[in-house]
C-alpha cells in the first residue's frame, strides 16, 4: 500500500503516459482519462488486492476492476502497466495495428488485467455483478469495483443492473460514477439531464456516498469508507466528482477534450505541467 505522496507521484506519471499515448496516434480519449487518474491509481496502488504478476482470468481471491466506460482506456492501460500487469514499453503500441492495447479494452488479444471488452456503454455493471455473484458462490471474500461515466447512465441497461443488484443483495461490489458533467455533445445537463443521482441510486436500493475524485487523500479515504460499507446487504455507489482533463490546464473542465488528441505544441505544454516521476515509457 502506497502513501498519498507516492500515489500522487504515480498519478503524475500516469497523466504523462495518457497525453503521450493519445498524441502518438492522434486519437483516443484524454479528458476522462485525466479526470479519473487519481481514482484508478488509488484503486490499484492502495485499495485493491490484485495479483499483477500472476494474471488469471478467474481472479479468485483477488479484487477485480471493471472499466465500463471503456473509452478512457489510456488511464487504465497506464496504471496496469505501471502496476506490472504488462511491460510499460507496450504503452507505445496503443491503438496501433497488432497491439494488445486496442482503442477500447478487450480480452481478445489477451492483455493481462482485462476481463471483458467494454466501450459500447452500459454493459460493465451487469458483468461486474455477475462476477460479484461468482465470488459469492466461490466463498471468495474479495471485492469487485467498477467505474462508469456519468453520461453512461443514460443507457437503460445500467438501471436494469442497478435494480438487480439491490434485489439480490449484492454487497461485495463498489461502483463509482465519474461525475464530470460532460459528454461528447456538451454538458450532461444540456444533452440529457441526469437529475439527482444520489436520490436515483438510493431509490434503486444502493448505499450511496460522495467523493471528491481529484484529491488523492480524499480518494484514499473515500475508498476506505466505501470498503467499510460493503458486506451489509446493499451494493455501494460512489458518486465521484471530477474535472474532465484534470492536470492539464487547457484541457480541464470542458467536453472539448473528450476524444481529441493534443498536437505537438499542446503536448509540450501539457508535459510541462506534469512531472516525470517514474520515467516515461
Amino acid at each position: 500500500m502506497s502513501t498519498t505522496a507516492e500515489l500522487q507521484k504515480i498519478a503524475s506519471q500516469v497523466r504523462r503516459d495518457i497525453v503521450r499515448m493519445v498524441h502518438a496516434v492522434n486519437s483516443g480519449h484524454p479528458g476522462g482519462s485525466l479526470g479519473c487518474t487519481d481514482y484508478i491509481v488509488a484503486l490499484y496502488f492502495n485499495a485493491m488486492n490484485v495479483k499483477a504478476d500472476q494474471w488469471s482470468m478467474d481472479g479468485v481471491n483477488e479484487d477485480l476492476f471493471f472499466l465500463s466506460n471503456g473509452h478512457i482506456s489510456p488511464v487504465w492501460y497506464s496504471v496496469l502497466s505501471r502496476k506490472g500487469f504488462f511491460p510499460v514499453a507496450e504503452l507505445a503500441t496503443f491503438r496501433k495495428l497488432d497491439s494488445r492495447l486496442q482503442g477500447h479494452p478487450t480480452t481478445h488479444e489477451g492483455l493481462p488485467g482485462i476481463r471483458v471488452a467494454s466501450g459500447s456503454l452500459g454493459q460493465g455493471l451487469s458483468v461486474a455483478l455477475g462476477a460479484a455473484q461468482a465470488k459469492k458462490l466461490n466463498n471468495d471474500p474479495s471485492l469487485v469495483y467498477t467505474l462508469h461515466g456519468d453520461g453512461e447512465l443514460q443507457e437503460g441497461q445500467i438501471w436494469e443492473a442497478a435494480m438487480y443488484a439491490a434485489h439480490h443483495k449484492i454487497d461485495n461490489i463498489i461502483s463509482a460514477i465519474d461525475v464530470n458533467g460532460q459528454q461528447i455533445d456538451g454538458p450532461t445537463e444540456k444533452v440529457m439531464n441526469l437529475g439527482n443521482l444520489r436520490m436515483k441510486w438510493e431509490a434503486f436500493g444502493w448505499d450511496v456516498m460522495e467523493m471528491e475524485g481529484n484529491d488523492m487523500q480524499a480518494v484514499v479515504d473515500g475508498l476506505a469508507k466505501a470498503k467499510s460499507m460493503t458486506g451489509k446487504g446493499k451494493p455501494v455507489m460512489i458518486l465521484m466528482t471530477t474535472s474532465m482533463g484534470k492536470g492539464v490546464d487547457f484541457m480541464e473542465g470542458t467536453h472539448k477534450w473528450h476524444g481529441v488528441a493534443p498536437n505537438d505544441a499542446e503536448l509540450a505544454n501539457a508535459l510541462g505541467q506534469l512531472e516525470e516521476t517514474l520515467g516515461d515509457y
Partner: peptide, 26 residues
C-alpha cells in the same frame, strides 16, 4: 436454488451477468 438466478424482465442485464459469472469459473 443456490445456482439459479431470477433476473426479471431485463434481458440485456442477463447477458452481462452471464458474461460476468464466467469470471470465477462458472
Amino acid at each position: 436454488p443456490e445456482r439459479f438466478y431470477q433476473v426479471g424482465i431485463a434481458e440485456a442485464n442477463m447477458m452481462g451477468l452471464a458474461a460476468g459469472m464466467t469470471i470465477g469459473g462458472y
